[in-house]
Protein backbone atom coordinates (compact mmCIF):
# COMPACT_ATOMS: atom_id res chain seq x y z
CA UNK A 1 0.00 0.00 0.00
CA UNK A 2 2.81 2.37 0.88
CA UNK A 3 4.50 1.95 -2.45
CA UNK A 4 1.15 2.39 -4.19
CA UNK A 5 0.62 5.76 -2.49
CA UNK A 6 4.17 6.76 -3.36
CA UNK A 7 3.64 5.80 -6.99
CA UNK A 8 0.44 7.81 -7.15
CA UNK A 9 2.23 10.79 -5.59
CA UNK A 10 4.74 10.54 -8.42
CA UNK A 11 1.91 10.43 -10.94
CA UNK A 12 0.36 13.52 -9.39
CA UNK A 13 3.67 15.41 -9.46
CA UNK A 14 4.10 14.56 -13.13
CA UNK A 15 0.58 15.75 -13.93
CA UNK A 16 1.22 18.93 -11.95
CA UNK A 17 4.37 19.61 -14.00
CA UNK A 18 2.40 19.48 -17.24
CA UNK A 19 -0.17 21.92 -15.81
CA UNK A 20 2.15 24.32 -13.99
CA UNK A 21 3.73 26.02 -17.00
CA UNK A 22 0.43 26.84 -18.70
CA UNK A 23 -0.96 28.07 -15.39
CA UNK A 24 2.04 30.40 -15.13
CA UNK A 25 1.25 31.61 -18.65
CA UNK A 26 -2.24 32.63 -17.51
CA UNK A 27 -0.87 34.32 -14.40
CA UNK A 28 1.79 36.20 -16.34
CA UNK A 29 -0.66 37.73 -18.81
CA UNK A 30 -3.18 38.50 -16.10
CA UNK A 31 -0.58 40.10 -13.91
CA UNK A 32 0.64 42.49 -16.58
CA UNK A 33 -2.41 43.20 -18.65
CA UNK A 34 -5.33 42.30 -16.41
CA UNK A 35 -6.73 40.09 -19.12
CA UNK A 36 -7.32 36.37 -19.42
CA UNK A 37 -6.35 34.99 -22.82
CA UNK A 38 -8.48 31.88 -23.19
CA UNK A 39 -6.65 30.39 -26.18
CA UNK A 40 -3.37 29.66 -24.37
CA UNK A 41 -4.05 25.90 -24.28
CA UNK A 42 -4.49 25.84 -28.03
CA UNK A 43 -1.30 27.82 -28.52
CA UNK A 44 0.61 25.25 -26.43
CA UNK A 45 -0.84 22.38 -28.46
CA UNK A 46 -0.10 24.22 -31.71
CA UNK A 47 3.54 24.60 -30.64
CA UNK A 48 3.73 20.87 -29.98
CA UNK A 49 2.33 20.32 -33.46
CA UNK A 50 5.08 22.58 -34.79
CA UNK A 51 7.73 20.34 -33.19
CA UNK A 52 5.94 17.26 -34.51
CA UNK A 53 5.83 18.81 -37.97
CA UNK A 54 9.58 19.47 -38.00
CA UNK A 55 10.40 15.92 -36.91
CA UNK A 56 8.11 14.46 -39.54
CA UNK A 57 9.96 16.40 -42.25
CA UNK A 58 12.54 13.65 -42.53
CA UNK A 59 15.07 15.71 -44.47
CA UNK A 60 15.22 18.52 -41.95
CA UNK A 61 15.34 16.26 -38.93
CA UNK A 62 18.06 14.06 -40.45
CA UNK A 63 20.09 17.13 -41.37
CA UNK A 64 19.78 18.44 -37.81
CA UNK A 65 20.92 15.12 -36.44
CA UNK A 66 23.78 15.05 -38.92
CA UNK A 67 25.14 18.42 -37.84
CA UNK A 68 24.59 18.19 -34.09
CA UNK A 69 24.56 15.36 -31.61
CA UNK A 70 21.10 13.96 -30.78
CA UNK A 71 20.70 15.91 -27.55
CA UNK A 72 21.54 19.27 -29.07
CA UNK A 73 19.27 18.80 -32.07
CA UNK A 74 16.41 17.84 -29.77
CA UNK A 75 16.98 20.96 -27.69
CA UNK A 76 16.95 23.00 -30.89
CA UNK A 77 13.62 21.41 -31.75
CA UNK A 78 12.14 22.35 -28.39
CA UNK A 79 13.42 25.90 -28.81
CA UNK A 80 11.76 25.98 -32.24
CA UNK A 81 8.49 25.04 -30.54
CA UNK A 82 8.97 27.79 -27.97
CA UNK A 83 9.71 30.38 -30.66
CA UNK A 84 6.63 29.26 -32.57
CA UNK A 85 4.57 29.69 -29.41
CA UNK A 86 6.02 33.16 -28.87
CA UNK A 87 5.23 34.19 -32.45
CA UNK A 88 1.70 32.80 -32.22
CA UNK A 89 1.03 34.60 -28.95
CA UNK A 90 2.27 37.87 -30.41
CA UNK A 91 0.04 37.43 -33.44
CA UNK A 92 -2.87 36.69 -31.10
CA UNK A 93 -2.08 39.81 -29.10
CA UNK A 94 -2.29 42.03 -32.14
CA UNK A 95 -5.39 40.44 -33.64
CA UNK A 96 -7.69 39.50 -30.78
CA UNK A 97 -6.38 41.15 -27.61
CA UNK A 98 -5.09 44.62 -28.42
CA UNK A 99 -8.24 45.83 -30.25
CA UNK A 100 -10.31 45.24 -27.11
CA UNK A 101 -7.94 46.75 -24.55
CA UNK A 102 -9.70 48.93 -22.07
CA UNK A 103 -13.12 48.00 -23.40
CA UNK A 104 -15.65 45.62 -21.94
CA UNK A 105 -13.87 42.43 -20.82
CA UNK A 106 -16.65 40.36 -22.36
CA UNK A 107 -15.47 41.21 -25.87
CA UNK A 108 -11.86 40.18 -25.26
CA UNK A 109 -13.05 37.06 -23.44
CA UNK A 110 -15.11 35.96 -26.41
CA UNK A 111 -12.56 36.94 -29.01
CA UNK A 112 -9.85 34.85 -27.35
CA UNK A 113 -12.20 31.87 -27.00
CA UNK A 114 -12.99 32.22 -30.70
CA UNK A 115 -9.27 32.51 -31.50
CA UNK A 116 -8.79 29.19 -29.72
CA UNK A 117 -11.36 27.62 -32.01
CA UNK A 118 -9.62 29.09 -35.04
CA UNK A 119 -6.19 27.75 -34.04
CA UNK A 120 -7.61 24.31 -33.27
CA UNK A 121 -9.53 24.05 -36.51
CA UNK A 122 -6.62 25.34 -38.59
CA UNK A 123 -4.52 22.48 -37.21
CA UNK A 124 -7.34 20.01 -37.84
CA UNK A 125 -7.81 21.14 -41.42
CA UNK A 126 -4.32 21.93 -42.61
CA UNK A 127 -2.02 19.60 -40.68
CA UNK A 128 -1.88 16.33 -42.65
CA UNK A 129 -4.32 13.98 -40.91
CA UNK A 130 -4.64 16.63 -38.22
CA UNK A 131 -7.98 15.40 -36.89
CA UNK A 132 -6.54 11.98 -36.06
CA UNK A 133 -4.49 11.50 -32.91
CA UNK A 134 -0.78 11.78 -33.71
CA UNK A 135 2.04 9.78 -32.17
CA UNK A 136 4.41 12.25 -30.60
CA UNK A 137 8.04 11.30 -31.23
CA UNK A 138 10.06 10.35 -28.20
CA UNK A 139 12.66 13.10 -28.12
CA UNK A 140 13.57 12.51 -24.48
CA UNK A 141 15.91 9.66 -23.53
CA UNK A 142 14.35 6.33 -22.62
CA UNK A 143 15.33 4.03 -19.78
CA UNK A 144 15.07 4.18 -16.02
CA UNK A 145 17.10 5.44 -13.11
CA UNK A 146 17.89 2.72 -10.50
CA UNK A 147 15.68 0.38 -12.56
CA UNK A 148 12.64 1.98 -10.91
CA UNK A 149 9.72 2.30 -13.30
CA UNK A 150 8.55 5.53 -11.69
CA UNK A 151 11.94 7.17 -12.24
CA UNK A 152 12.15 7.06 -16.01
CA UNK A 153 14.59 9.53 -17.51
CA UNK A 154 11.70 11.15 -19.31
CA UNK A 155 9.87 11.89 -16.06
CA UNK A 156 13.02 13.22 -14.46
CA UNK A 157 13.67 15.52 -17.40
CA UNK A 158 10.08 16.79 -17.38
CA UNK A 159 10.29 17.65 -13.67
CA UNK A 160 13.76 19.09 -14.16
CA UNK A 161 12.68 21.29 -17.04
CA UNK A 162 9.70 22.61 -15.11
CA UNK A 163 11.88 23.49 -12.12
CA UNK A 164 14.52 25.07 -14.36
CA UNK A 165 11.96 27.20 -16.17
CA UNK A 166 10.51 28.30 -12.84
CA UNK A 167 13.92 29.30 -11.55
CA UNK A 168 14.74 31.20 -14.71
CA UNK A 169 11.41 32.97 -14.50
CA UNK A 170 12.10 33.84 -10.85
CA UNK A 171 15.46 35.28 -11.81
CA UNK A 172 13.94 37.23 -14.69
CA UNK A 173 11.04 38.69 -12.74
CA UNK A 174 13.04 39.63 -9.64
CA UNK A 175 16.56 40.34 -10.86
CA UNK A 176 16.33 41.96 -14.29
CA UNK A 177 15.21 45.46 -15.17
CA UNK A 178 12.55 44.20 -17.57
CA UNK A 179 11.19 41.82 -14.95
CA UNK A 180 10.93 44.50 -12.31
CA UNK A 181 9.25 46.80 -14.84
CA UNK A 182 6.69 44.09 -15.49
CA UNK A 183 6.06 43.77 -11.76
CA UNK A 184 5.66 47.50 -11.48
CA UNK A 185 3.20 47.51 -14.35
CA UNK A 186 1.13 44.80 -12.76
CA UNK A 187 0.93 46.80 -9.54
CA UNK A 188 0.19 50.24 -10.92
CA UNK A 189 0.03 50.81 -14.61
CA UNK A 190 -0.37 54.59 -14.66
CA UNK A 191 2.41 55.28 -12.17
CA UNK A 192 4.78 52.94 -14.04
CA UNK A 193 4.14 54.68 -17.33
CA UNK A 194 4.69 58.02 -15.62
CA UNK A 195 8.14 57.04 -14.38
CA UNK A 196 9.12 56.09 -17.91
CA UNK A 197 8.45 52.39 -18.31
CA UNK A 198 7.65 51.63 -21.93
CA UNK A 199 4.35 49.85 -21.51
CA UNK A 200 4.04 48.54 -25.06
CA UNK A 201 7.55 47.15 -25.05
CA UNK A 202 6.94 45.40 -21.76
CA UNK A 203 3.69 43.91 -23.01
CA UNK A 204 5.49 42.49 -26.02
CA UNK A 205 8.27 41.13 -23.79
CA UNK A 206 5.69 39.48 -21.55
CA UNK A 207 3.95 37.93 -24.49
CA UNK A 208 7.20 36.62 -25.96
CA UNK A 209 8.23 35.05 -22.68
CA UNK A 210 4.75 33.68 -22.06
CA UNK A 211 4.60 32.27 -25.57
CA UNK A 212 7.96 30.56 -25.16
CA UNK A 213 6.72 29.05 -21.89
CA UNK A 214 3.62 27.78 -23.64
CA UNK A 215 5.72 26.17 -26.35
CA UNK A 216 7.70 24.28 -23.72
CA UNK A 217 4.49 23.40 -21.86
CA UNK A 218 3.04 21.92 -25.04
CA UNK A 219 6.21 19.92 -25.65
CA UNK A 220 6.26 18.52 -22.10
CA UNK A 221 2.59 17.57 -22.17
CA UNK A 222 2.87 15.89 -25.55
CA UNK A 223 6.01 14.03 -24.47
CA UNK A 224 4.41 12.86 -21.25
CA UNK A 225 1.29 11.62 -23.06
CA UNK A 226 3.35 10.46 -26.09
CA UNK A 227 0.36 11.43 -28.19
CA UNK A 228 -1.01 14.66 -29.56
CA UNK A 229 -4.60 15.52 -30.44
CA UNK A 230 -5.65 18.74 -32.10
CA UNK A 231 -8.73 19.17 -29.90
CA UNK A 232 -7.22 18.84 -26.43
CA UNK A 233 -6.20 22.50 -26.34
CA UNK A 234 -9.43 23.83 -24.86
CA UNK A 235 -9.45 21.41 -21.93
CA UNK A 236 -5.73 21.95 -21.39
CA UNK A 237 -6.26 25.71 -21.37
CA UNK A 238 -9.21 25.41 -19.01
CA UNK A 239 -7.15 23.34 -16.59
CA UNK A 240 -4.33 25.86 -16.90
CA UNK A 241 -6.68 28.72 -16.02
CA UNK A 242 -8.09 26.63 -13.17
CA UNK A 243 -4.70 26.02 -11.58
CA UNK A 244 -3.85 29.70 -11.94
CA UNK A 245 -7.05 30.67 -10.12
CA UNK A 246 -6.78 28.00 -7.43
CA UNK A 247 -3.22 29.07 -6.76
CA UNK A 248 -3.97 32.77 -6.98
CA UNK A 249 -4.32 34.52 -10.31
CA UNK A 250 -1.30 36.67 -11.02
CA UNK A 251 1.12 34.74 -8.84
CA UNK A 252 3.77 32.49 -10.40
CA UNK A 253 4.21 30.27 -7.36
CA UNK A 254 0.47 30.17 -6.93
CA UNK A 255 0.19 28.50 -10.30
CA UNK A 256 2.60 25.82 -9.14
CA UNK A 257 0.67 25.30 -5.90
CA UNK A 258 -2.62 25.24 -7.77
CA UNK A 259 -1.40 22.66 -10.23
CA UNK A 260 -0.27 20.43 -7.36
CA UNK A 261 -3.71 20.70 -5.71
CA UNK A 262 -5.64 19.89 -8.90
CA UNK A 263 -3.24 17.10 -9.89
CA UNK A 264 -3.39 15.43 -6.47
CA UNK A 265 -7.18 15.57 -6.39
CA UNK A 266 -7.54 14.10 -9.87
CA UNK A 267 -4.95 11.35 -9.40
CA UNK A 268 -6.14 10.30 -5.95
CA UNK A 269 -9.79 10.21 -6.96
CA UNK A 270 -8.82 7.97 -9.89
CA UNK A 271 -6.39 5.83 -7.94
CA UNK A 272 -8.13 5.22 -4.63
CA UNK A 273 -11.88 5.44 -5.18
CA UNK A 274 -13.27 2.36 -6.95
CA UNK A 275 -14.77 3.49 -10.24
CA UNK A 276 -13.43 6.96 -9.50
CA UNK A 277 -11.77 7.39 -12.89
CA UNK A 278 -15.03 8.62 -14.39
CA UNK A 279 -15.33 11.27 -11.67
CA UNK A 280 -11.80 12.67 -11.61
CA UNK A 281 -12.76 15.56 -13.90
CA UNK A 282 -15.82 16.34 -11.78
CA UNK A 283 -13.68 16.36 -8.62
CA UNK A 284 -11.07 18.66 -10.17
CA UNK A 285 -13.62 21.24 -11.27
CA UNK A 286 -15.54 20.99 -8.00
CA UNK A 287 -12.34 22.08 -6.24
CA UNK A 288 -12.16 25.07 -8.58
CA UNK A 289 -15.75 26.08 -7.83
CA UNK A 290 -15.20 25.73 -4.07
CA UNK A 291 -12.03 27.80 -4.23
CA UNK A 292 -13.71 30.60 -6.12
CA UNK A 293 -16.63 30.71 -3.71
CA UNK A 294 -14.71 30.43 -0.45
CA UNK A 295 -11.19 31.62 -1.23
CA UNK A 296 -11.27 33.62 -4.46
CA UNK A 297 -7.78 35.04 -3.88
CA UNK A 298 -6.36 31.52 -4.19
CA UNK A 299 -3.79 29.68 -2.10
CA UNK A 300 -1.20 32.42 -2.50
CA UNK A 301 -3.35 35.48 -2.77
CA UNK A 302 -1.23 38.11 -4.42
CA UNK A 303 -4.09 40.28 -5.47
CA UNK A 304 -7.43 40.64 -3.80
CA UNK A 305 -10.38 40.82 -6.12
CA UNK A 306 -12.73 42.39 -3.62
CA UNK A 307 -12.58 45.93 -4.88
CA UNK A 308 -15.65 46.97 -2.93
Amino acid sequence: MGSLILSQVFNAIMLACTLALIGIGFSLFFGVMDIVVFCLGDIAIASAFCILGITSLTGVYAALNGIFPMVVSNIILVICGGVFGAILVTVMYHTVVAPFEGKNINASLLSTVAAGYVIRELIGIFYPGGRDPQNFPNLLPTGYLFNNTMLSWRNIIIVGTTVLVLMLLYWFVNRTKAGISIQALSQNKEASIMIGIDWHKMVIVTFLIGGFLLGIAGFLTASYASTLRFDTGSMYGLLGFSVAVVGGLGSIYGALAGSLVIAFVEVFVTGFIPGGAAYSGVAGFLIVVLFIIFRPEGIIGEKSISKV
Binding site: N11, R229, T232, E266, V267, T270, G271, A277
Partner: peptide
Protein backbone atom coordinates in the same frame (compact mmCIF):
# COMPACT_ATOMS: atom_id res chain seq x y z
CA UNK B 1 -11.53 -3.56 -11.12
CA UNK B 2 -13.47 -1.61 -13.73
CA UNK B 3 -12.32 1.85 -14.79
CA UNK B 4 -14.39 3.94 -17.15
CA UNK B 5 -12.37 6.84 -18.48
CA UNK B 6 -13.60 9.70 -20.64
CA UNK B 7 -12.57 9.64 -24.30
CA UNK B 8 -9.70 11.99 -25.02
CA UNK B 9 -7.87 11.22 -21.79
CA UNK B 10 -4.14 10.82 -22.35
CA UNK B 11 -2.88 10.02 -18.87
CA UNK B 12 -3.79 6.48 -17.78
CA UNK B 13 -0.95 6.18 -15.27
CA UNK B 14 -3.06 6.57 -12.11
CA UNK B 15 -5.25 3.67 -13.24
CA UNK B 16 -2.36 1.57 -14.45
CA UNK B 17 -0.46 2.14 -11.21
CA UNK B 18 -3.50 0.90 -9.31
Amino acid sequence: SVDSIADGTTDFRPVVTK
